[in-house]
Nucleic acid binder design. Structure first.
Lengths: 136, 136
DNA sequence: ATAAACTGTAATCATTATTATTACATTTAG
DNA sequence: CTAAATGTAATAATAATGATTACAGTTTAT
């Protein structure tokens, strides 16, 4: 798994803290310690999923669409990292009854496990994170 | 995440199918399509956790310790892949209140999410997998 | 209308993680 | 004593991730 998810959460949290302001990728990059181009790629997917809005050009930047208490982590996880929990299986031997079927079976099992995982993340909002930050 | 977990499940399932026989890493490698040395490394960790027994030397090999219905996937996952769900966070800016705290908070959240994930895997045994293979 | 400050994105390079392979020590059966 | 195994370290090859460069397009302000 790459770190797109945690970077995305960082971005959204950052934007939530600066609600009603427009923030540049350069600015966010300062906080996350990640190259602005990479951030823009991640922010771009968040935009396509209507989590944030971007504005090009001078005085442009990014801003949150919804209040932090409405943004749950499962959504961000789905956008950035869906399916990454499902393990890669080596392409096992087609002539072996175990190898032949195991991959499909494991994928199914992991799908279910991932749902339990996401279900927990659904209960955590960006506001929860901000509250935790404020209390620490 | 690497594919150690799915390889380990494959190995254990294979050994379960050949209960009371001793199987070589070469033999398992045929089914999994993975290099025997890599298998032995993974099998070695399973041995240390008492999932399987190995015997060196001629006529040596690997065998299962317990009946398949007693082996749950969460155990195998813990052995091979514990903590791999917790996202890597870039070392973010210490001078930024968000960056400073977010990493710890995310790690905590993911710990909890992983528990839900494992809890589901705890309900799946190697016997379940064998049954699925037999029915397909 | 043009310069400056942005986003959007493709392409390349560097780094890291994963996997395969080689080599060899050790153990055991026959 | 030899052949067939495991155990494991070291190296090499491949794949994934991440940083950087380059540049096109958009918008603001002068």
């Amino acid at each position: 798994m790459n770190s797109d998810f945690s970077i995305a959460v960082h971005c959204v949290t950052y934007l939530a803290k600066k609600q009603n302001q427009r923030v540049t990728s350069e600015d966010i990059a300062q906080s996350v310690s990640v190259h602005p181009v990479r951030l823009r790629k991640i922010l771009s997917t968040l935009r396509k999923e209507n989590i944030i809005t971007s504005k090009e050009g001078a005085k442009g930047g990014f801003s949150l669409n919804d209040p932090p208490e409405h943004i749950t982590l499962d959504k961000i996880f789905k956008i950035t990292s869906e399916e990454t929990l499902v393990p890669k299986c080596p392409d096992s031997n087609e002539n072996c009854p175990i190898g032949k079927n195991l991959s499909d079976i494991l994928i199914r099992i992991f799908h279910n496990a991932e749902e339990h995982f996401l279900n927990y993340l659904k209960g955590v909002t960006i506001k929860d994170i901000i509250d935790e930050i404020n209390n620490s």
